[in-house]
Write a protein that binds this DNA or RNA. Structure first.
Ligand SMILES: [Zn+2]
Ligand SMILES: [Zn+2]
Ligand SMILES: [Zn+2]
Ligand SMILES: [Zn+2]
Lengths: 127, 127
DNA sequence: ATAATTAATGCAACAATGTTGCGATATATA
DNA sequence: TATATATCGCAACATTGTTGCATTAATTAT
């Protein structure tokens, strides 16, 4: 079987994401990592971390992709990322709102498997 | 003042979007328009139509941008696009669900100005 | 109907972002 | 320490979106 390895690039990138209180884009991670590795490597590490369920991918309102660490217990049976994200239109910070759970009624002829909710406006720091 | 003009490109693109029951990307519009105009013109026409509030922009789960016509009455006082979108993971169709209204409770220290909700799963055709 | 104004277009050139192939490197294991 | 192979670096490429400018065409005025 295909195993996964802990490399310096992977460790560094994961630390950067874990220590950030906002979601980070590929470019932001590259800057913060001080070019510790190639641009392509960052893409591949991010894919791996998402696959390992250590971080999750967020699509921002403008279509940019951001990454944040997963704060759930890793032994959950049902593992979803159905929490809301907030995108501040002033400081552009994207944060996970793990406690907010949206409710909605869907027509029965749809099968909903995942939700991706993003709110925008002003965050507490910018309010 | 700067007026807007009705050109063949604009008319054609708007017709394509209006007659589609799913949201369309720039590339899809280009294909459907049979290369009636330059790639850049499509970008500019789409920006104009969004600015005129005739169509609205949707960010799909994968970060791709799609466009759909607005179905609201144009004399509404409050004009928002806070409806849910559904993205089918099989046929990749993105549709507007104008009737579904999500509810949620936000912490008071956030100011929510806009919402962007996308559900994914299987649409009625693929179920 | 014709001329004048300028919004809109086409084209080229560029920037940003993401992907792929492959030889070289480094990690985990024996 | 030796081996297997996951991962990396690099180059090359694809896609998507932007900008500047000369040309074209839609609207308005004459
Ligand atoms: Zn903010
Ligand atoms: Zn999150
Ligand atoms: Zn479908
Ligand atoms: Zn819509």
């Amino acid at each position: 079987m295909k195993t996964t390895r802990n490399t310096t690039a992977k460790t560094t990138i994961l630390e950067i994401i874990k220590h950030s209180d906002v979601a980070l884009s590929h470019t932001e991670i590259q800057t913060l990592s001080n070019n510790i590795c190639d641009r392509v490597t960052i893409y591949r590490v991010l894919d791996r971390l998402v696959g390992e369920d250590v971080i999750h991918k967020i699509v921002n309102l403008d279509g940019t992709i951001k990454y944040a660490s997963c704060h759930h217990a890793h032994n959950e049976v049902e593992h979803t990322h159905n929490h809301i994200h907030f995108s501040c239109e002033k400081c552009h910070a994207v944060t996970c709102l793990d406690t907010v759970e949206p409710t909605f009624k869907m027509p029965s002829n749809y099968l909903v498997k995942a939700v991706n909710f993003t709110l925008s406006g002003l965050c507490p720091s910018c309010l």
